[in-house]
Design a protein around this nucleic acid. Structure first.
Length: 644
DNA sequence: GCACCAGACTCAGAAACTTCTAT
DNA sequence: TATAGAAGTTTCTGAGTCTGGTG
């Protein structure tokens, strides 16, 4: 094999016809992505779903308690539904023709602390200038949080805090350890308690005021349709809370003003009004992008955007296209797999590395792993950026041959640990890649995401590393549902099967969550219930036994029916126990796994919709109201026969 | 042709908030 | 019926992926 010492080269990307390639691929690929014909069939079902689905009400169905009002609201919403998926699709880069909105909502101005809430330095009370005090409250509010125990957080905070202090304050306040924020912390806790203890009317008043703001600023008119905006509030100032060991945690996120904001709207639309005494940084009319407003944040210099809600056409269409690309991969994945298996034997190191990385991305649903600027973010990696220290190789482990053990921090500093047996060639290649390297060296030193994605583009139009994650997630759900669903099961058991299938995906994608604070307690409650139920069952068993004796002795009709009744009671209790035990298992298995992320971002909703239709499971058992809005296109178009 | 970088978008878990349920 | 706290939902914003422009 050639040692291949050539430096990493960026791929040659033919820029000119990427858009047209993408367009062609979407147009030609799959019938299901063509609107109207199939979708119309399902129209009736969607209406039915809408009427029946919200019987219980939901978080956002809000204040109206009377059924009449609720029905009226639902009808209004129904009228507003824009069935964009039935319209002809264009992919010419133009995202909208007309766009009108009211601009963002700014964070409320700082309200100084009351005089009785004091800050102390070195034991002495100190009155702070308004801006200094505001930043002190950011820290005070977080006093009980883990963040304030971290050195990086405290150092960064103190440095940025000093920047806003007056000269005199700077001279006095020189050591964070001597600062006493306790009264500030207590004050905000008290405020929070006060909010909780407010009367119904007070709460209602606040809610209505919020709703009025949402009504005015929370929607835009895009191509003549009213659509919800996802985040119409500008992020308030505060302390930057990075995930994991972020080197910038604790830095001051400054207040965003109108002068920082770029407004994007239609040429002929009314331009949103800037707050009094202010003006926008810029007003532009760029219909090649989907955002309504943007600004640069001061911590990492990134652009922040105000965009539409997930239920909007722009987001929905993209989502639909995403799953179509994943389905397209399904059709050629065998060939691609054969291709990278062949590449395991390549003479060129860079090809072998590419093949092994792709093998992991495919098999383990790892993220691509872009390069990151050192020292600017937490030290996390994905597949292409794995280092030697993130893997261990075992010729044999737990009586399995050729095991690779992964241990690294992925996105959001979530730890990924997994030990998997791999093919011998993969194992031998990994040995080769790690030879003569330090633990901190790149495992795939001749590979990066640009090279990998360039290769994937050559294999299939529209294919990137990310598509494998979507594909394998959706594929797993489909397979698990096929495997686990028993058509004769009651709805509750079917839902349990669905959740298990969903969980398999969440495990694959390593979607974790912190164990809920109340978990141990609620688990204990469940166990108590189970124990109680068991005791009741024992008693019921005794009752059955007694009834049997009575019946044997008298053989009377009355005693027979009594025996039957006791038997039925016992049966029901045993069923209840089983349900409780299943629920307990379910909860325990779920304690550190987040199902929502995969459901929302990786699972083709048509799989779930089809499954619901096929097995007569009400869709609202699987998707809540927001999810149903997001996946309305899928609910409308997918029939029971849909297979991913 | 290549490296670099900014922009635009998706995906992510925590925290805040609302509703439901048990007592 | 009131209340507490558990469970479910929504919001928030940080952290990724990928593309395309520039020199």
């Amino acid at each position: 094999m050639k040692p291949d010492s050539s430096p990493i080269k960026s791929p040659k990307v033919k820029k000119e016809d990427k858009a047209s390639k993408k367009r062609k691929s979407l147009e030609s690929e799959d019938e299901d992505f063509k609107p109207v014909s199939k979708a119309k069939k399902a129209k009736k079902e969607v209406k039915k779903e809408k009427k029946g689905s919200d019987k219980k009400g939901s978080a956002s169905s809000g204040t109206e308690s009377s059924p009449k009002k609720r029905v009226k609201k639902e009808k209004e919403e129904e009228r507003e539904v824009w069935k964009w998926w039935e319209e002809e699709k264009k992919d010419d880069g133009v995202k909208w023709k007309t766009l009108e909105h009211k601009g963002p909502v700014f964070a409320p101005p700082y309200e100084p602390l009351p005089d009785n809430v004091k800050f102390y330095y070195d034991g002495k009370q100190m009155k702070l200038a308004e801006e200094t005090e505001e930043v002190a409250t950011f820290y005070g509010k977080m006093l009980d949080h883990d963040y304030t125990t971290k050195d990086a957080f405290n150092t960064n905070f103190f440095r940025d805090w000093k920047k806003v202090m007056t000269k005199a304050e700077k001279e006095v306040i020189t050591d964070l350890k001597k600062c006493n924020f306790k009264e500030i912390c207590e004050y905000f806790k008290m405020k929070s308690e006060e909010r909780k203890a407010m009367s119904k009317d007070q709460k209602k008043e606040i809610k209505e005021a919020n709703e009025a703001i949402t009504k005015e600023y929370g929607f835009c008119i895009i191509d003549g349709h009213k659509e919800k905006i996802g985040n119409f509030r500008i992020e308030p100032p505060g302390l930057f809370r990075g995930r994991g060991e972020h080197p910038k945690q604790g830095m001051l996120k400054r207040r965003v003003q109108a002068e920082d904001i770029i407004i994007n709207c239609g040429k002929d639309s009314e331009i949103p009004e800037a707050p009094k005494g202010h003006k926008w940084k810029e007003v532009r009319h760029d219909n090649q992008v989907t955002w309504l407003a943007s600004w640069n944040e001061n911590i990492q210099g990134q652009t922040k955007y105000i965009m539409l809600n997930a239920a909007s056409k722009l987001k929905g269409e993209k989502d639909w296209a995403k799953y179509e690309v994943a389905r397209k991969l399904h059709k050629c994945v065998d060939k691609i797999r054969a291709n990278y298996h062949e590449d395991f034997k390549s003479k060129e190191m860079r090809i072998r590395q590419r093949a092994v990385a792709l093998y992991f991305i495919d098999k383990l649903a790892l993220r691509a792993g872009n390069e990151k600027e050192e020292g600017e973010t937490a030290d996390t990696v994905g597949c292409c950026s794995l280092r030697v220290e993130h893997t261990k190789l075992y010729e044999e482990k737990d009586s399995k041959p050729y095991v690779v053990e992964f241990d690294f921090l992925g996105k959001d500093s979530i730890r990924y640990t997994n030990a998997i047996p791999v093919e011998k060639r993969v194992f031998k290649n990994l040995e080769l890649f790690t030879q003569n390297k330090q633990p901190s060296d790149d495992l795939f030193d001749r590979l990066n995401t640009t090279i990998l994605n360039k290769h994937l583009h050559d294999l299939m139009e529209g294919l990137t590393a990310k598509v494998f994650r979507t594909y394998n997630a959706s594929r797993t759900l489909q397979e698990q549902l096929n495997l686990l669903t028993d058509p004769d099961d009651p709805v509750a058991s079917k839902i349990l099967s669905y959740n298990r299938a969903n969980r398999a995906v969440a495990v694959l994608c390593n979607h974790q969550r912190a164990v809920p604070k109340t978990f141990a307690k609620s688990m204990q409650n469940m166990m108590t219930k189970i124990e109680d139920k068991k005791k009741t069952i024992q008693e019921a068993k005794r009752n059955v036994k007694d009834a049997k004796v009575d019946y044997k002795q008298s053989k009377s009709e009355k005693n027979r029916s009594n025996l039957d009744r006791k038997k039925k009671i016992l049966e029901r209790l045993e069923e209840q126990l089983q349900k409780l035990e299943v629920a307990a298992t379910d909860r325990d298995e779920n304690k550190d796994i987040a199902l929502g992320t995969s459901k929302l971002n990786y699972l083709d909703p048509r799989i779930s919709v089809a499954w619901c239709k096929k097995f007569d499971v009400p869709i609202e058992k699987i998707y809540n109201k927001t999810q149903r809005e997001k996946f309305r296109w899928a609910i409308d178009m997918a029939t029971a026969e849909f297979q991913f």
